[in-house]
Design a protein around this nucleic acid. Structure first.
Lengths: 148, 148
DNA sequence: ACGGAAATGTAGCCGATGCTATATTTCAAA
DNA sequence: TTTGAAATATAGCATCGGCTACATTTCCGT
């Protein structure tokens, strides 16, 4: 369906179902990178480096899975590593990790603010956070600010 | 980190990072079924049947992709169809569609209630909804009720 | 200094989810 | 009634993200 086919009254700014689903698919493909960069940042802060075994254990996957994911991270310019050594984030990786962590905290805070039990908020935020747009993030901030 | 290694004060009910990530992965694997059942329900209501071409167009994918997904839906007992005919939901499929639709509406309502612009709320809800647990859903309901 | 355990890497399998290209079937219009 | 366009099905390819099994490297304890 091209926009030509739309009825006149909603022709220009209409967001189609397909747009939304396509957006959700695009996000799904970056969600894993976000999880990895955030985790690598955490481990680096805690231990001075992120080791494959620790990454795998925290994510609940096997090391080969973590290893493959790190290869993809490196290919995308988000991390660097030498064989048999720890993994480190590039500047781009650090930037992603920081943004992801800030967003994660904000999502948890908002969930708790509307009455979600903290345990459930943490659990659900792990999936939700990836889909929260900048616009929605701003709205969350405004809501939490106006609430103090 | 096994639970044996935990400090005494948070030993028993601790939810680990791995638990949360494993939960998120499990949800990711059912999200597609949820999208399809909801969409098939919509199309069936609109047109009396859900045709592969319409499913594909609404989701923004090619028909072979939609066809394969429908095969998986059928394998999971969520839908039925005969060759070159429309797709219909089973009772299980209808139940899933109803739950998904109710949850979707609730998520959109909550986002709007905390100040997210409707357009962004619709967009983000498409991904968020899948990760909203029953507990969180109940909290959203309570929040929206206590707000009228 | 070396030997074994732990960590890391690699190979190969599988299913999911996308695609393009090519049949095949349906259905409506001439 | 036939035939051509639209819809549907199928084949085959790629990537991702899991896994197990096995190879290699590191590093600690004796």
């Amino acid at each position: 369906m091209s926009s030509d086919d739309l009825a006149p009254e909603d022709a220009v700014t209409e967001t189609t179902d397909a747009d939304r689903f396509t957006n959700a698919r695009a996000i799904r493909s970056t969600a894993l990178f976000e999880d990895y960069t955030e985790l690598i940042a955490d481990l680096t802060e805690e231990f001075g480096e992120a080791r494959i075994t620790d990454i795998a254990r925290r994510l609940g996957v096997t090391h080969p899975t973590a290893n493959k994911a790190v290869l993809r991270l490196k290919r995308e310019g988000l991390a660097i590593s030498r064989p048999y050594r720890g993994v480190f984030l590039t500047e781009a990786g650090v930037a992603m990790a920081k943004a992801v962590k800030a967003r994660h905290r904000l999502v948890v805070r908002l969930l708790i603010a509307v009455g979600v039990p903290p345990e459930a908020a943490e659990m659900d935020a792990e999936g939700i956070e990836h889909y929260v747009s900048e616009t929605t993030l701003k709205a969350f901030e405004a809501y939490l600010d106006g609430r103090d």
